[in-house]
Design a protein around this nucleic acid. Structure first.
Lengths: 370, 370
DNA sequence: TTACAGCATTAGAGCGCTCCAACCAATAGA
DNA sequence: TCTATTGGTTGGAGCGCTCTAATGCTGTAA
């Protein structure tokens, strides 16, 4: 249970501690003979460097802290993948902590992360107040993902929710829909831009917006549909604030004897793994999640290396993924239009996405910096 | 960008560094006067202790490392919640790292975690070879979740997959099913116990097992159903190896014009959030995930405090959650039996679970140690 | 020969903290 | 009176490492 130290390795290799240190850090100014001797001794003792002692002595850190507001949401997992990829490339390690969507717990997580004195911090959709972020930003570089900030020392990476909503509306309009409602995300992150984008796009097409108050859950989506049904105000197409909401809406529609997409089209938002399930096969808006992570890591490392001082505000383009929950409206139907579960046969792993999906996954995503 | 040290606080409060240290650690042997003076100075300077220096000096750590094999799987998020709960209670912090289901990356994650010299490590369903775990176990206490081990210094927490499968089979048999197939999880973790439990339970009822080779994905579930259909070997009930597989199976059944549960009943395994969606409403087997986390943390802390040296092997009882994908078989049907989407109305957040579900969520879960 | 590079190597200070032994009243006991 | 005892406080060593400046050791030029 006791790990060997640099001293032990030095003794065994017959050199000084400082020399071992140089070898461990891959310094070029070590003779090949000594280097192999040291590495051999280290190997034999099972030595591995003590990261904390190292960072204490060097007053630098090769650790990036990542605060994930909600581990239950697979959205963040892909962002972390992107962060990890870049960090590893650049010789940095990441440590993760979670806030469980509670400001108090998140604050604690932040404090804990800070106590390791990482080189920088990436916060994924944090719910702590802006002042807390500002205070932390005085101590180390911080990048925010899926949350905006006005602090000039903080970089941000977001998706363009307005554009995403516009893509969805354009898709539905091009199918022939004229009555398109939006199930709104209320106070949820990014709900604002999505709502604004929806309204702007609807009006750009000369149509009338219909915003129904809802939330980011499947139960809320179902509730919203039931209220539309009881008001007799059901449109021919629905743009939900996210995928969960959309799935709830679909359930409520089917419960009421309506078919999706024959009677009503539904579009989600986020392209979660849920949407890709063949049982669901939801038309939705994809965000380049891994790219979020990569850009966040790159931005953070620039700050860490003091290569940049002006803030960077990445606003990424979402893309439309057409699956089986959208079709022309019933009145204007001819014969075409994908049906739910119409792609029965075929052994491919794919879930019947159209080409828009492969586009969604293409790497050459543009990023609009401003 | 430069944080104050204990020295700064001591200077400002007019005391020694050692006294500040005592205050920071909440020692009782400090006069009230000095204590408030120190806390005031710390507050004014925005001081917070340097976790790494502390752990270096004290040769102890209040950090528990958690290696999550796959962040994309919400299963682990709930386990982490359980760990976090206990750790926080006991004054420990956790840091998380992820292995992305790749042995190489996982190994790196392990190495990174180890370099922080945490008090102990919890590995969630690790895929690294047993030898790597054994080697790490020589350096610090380790607890494995959702993976077994024979190493006597390693504790484990698992669910009783055999019992879970038995619960599912018993449920289906009690509904009147006689032909029940198992879509097998192949090489996947825990697939073995589930398969064994299925076979044992089927034979205990005097029936004939029918194991269909499959995997832990929805595409694989659909594929398995199609092969059953083309062989003309479709049973009246399916026990899938997990929820994703079950959802894929349901899709394929519906694609073939069969109704679930009227024509075929389907049971999943894991009770993921997916299963609880009203659109899916899958009958499944629930594992007490948060309890996994809690027990793992408790076991680890016992080792950390050297309160125990014999290994502990928790084997938790899973429970059945009845939703809307199981019903009596078509031939023996009378009138009862829940139908898919039969619980249309009602604004509750619930998803139409029967009482078995509330039982599933009850806290008084037994744990069978051996 | 001496001087001086140039390179590999090392001693030693110090990173921010904890911990131990020592210290210093102030009080209690003999 | 002197000696313990107690509670609060402090200096200093040291955790495992990095970093700077200094050291020794060639080889080459003067």
């Amino acid at each position: 249970m006791v790990r060997p130290t640099m001293e032990d390795v030095a003794l065994r290799a017959g050199v000084s501690r400082a020399l071992v240190s140089l070898v461990m850090r891959g310094s070029p100014k070590v003779s090949e003979m000594r280097r192999t001797a040291v590495l051999k001794a280290a190997e034999e003792l099972g030595y591995s460097p003590h990261a904390m002692a190292r960072s204490l002595a060097s007053r630098t850190s090769t650790v990036l802290g990542v605060m994930v507001s909600d581990l239950h949401n697979a959205f963040f997992a892909e962002v972390v993948d992107g962060i990890d990829e870049v960090a590893r490339e650049q010789g940095f390690d990441i440590i993760i902590n979670t806030g469980g969507r509670s400001p108090a717990r998140e604050r604690r997580a932040l404090e804990s992360l800070l106590s390791f004195r990482p080189a920088g911090l990436i916060l994924l959709s944090p719910v702590v107040p802006a002042t807390a972020i500002g205070k932390a930003a005085e101590q180390l570089p911080i990048v925010l993902v899926a949350r905006s900030s006005r602090v000039s020392t903080v970089d941000t990476v977001n998706d363009d929710g307005e554009q995403g909503a516009r893509l969805a509306v354009d898709h539905l309009v091009s199918l022939g829909h004229k009555r398109i409602a939006h199930l709104d995300g209320g106070e949820g992150t990014q709900a604002g831009p999505r709502r604004r984008g929806y309204i702007a796009a609807i009006e750009a097409h000369g149509l009338t917006p219909q915003v129904v108050s809802s939330e980011y859950t499947d139960a809320a989506g179902a509730r919203a549909i039931r209220s539309l049904l009881s008001d007799g105000a059901l449109p021919t197409a629905i743009l939900s604030c996210n995928d969960f909401n959309a799935v709830g809406a679909i359930s409520a529609l089917e419960d009421a004897g309506l078919r999706v997409p024959q009677d009503v089209s539904v579009v989600g938002y986020d392209n979660t793994s849920l949407a890709a399930l063949r049982h669901v096969s939801l038309t939705t808006i994809d965000q380049p999640r891994a790219e979020f992570g990569r850009l966040a890591a790159v931005a953070l490392l620039q700050r860490v290396r003091e290569e940049r001082t002006e803030p960077v505000r990445h606003l990424l383009n979402p893309s439309l993924v057409v699956r089986n929950t959208t079709a022309p409206p019933a009145t204007s139907r001819r014969s075409s239009g994908p049906l739910l579960s119409s792609t029965a046969a075929g052994d491919s792993a794919g879930s019947g996405d159209t080409t828009a999906d492969s586009q969604a996954r293409s790497p050459e995503r543009r990023s609009r910096d401003q």
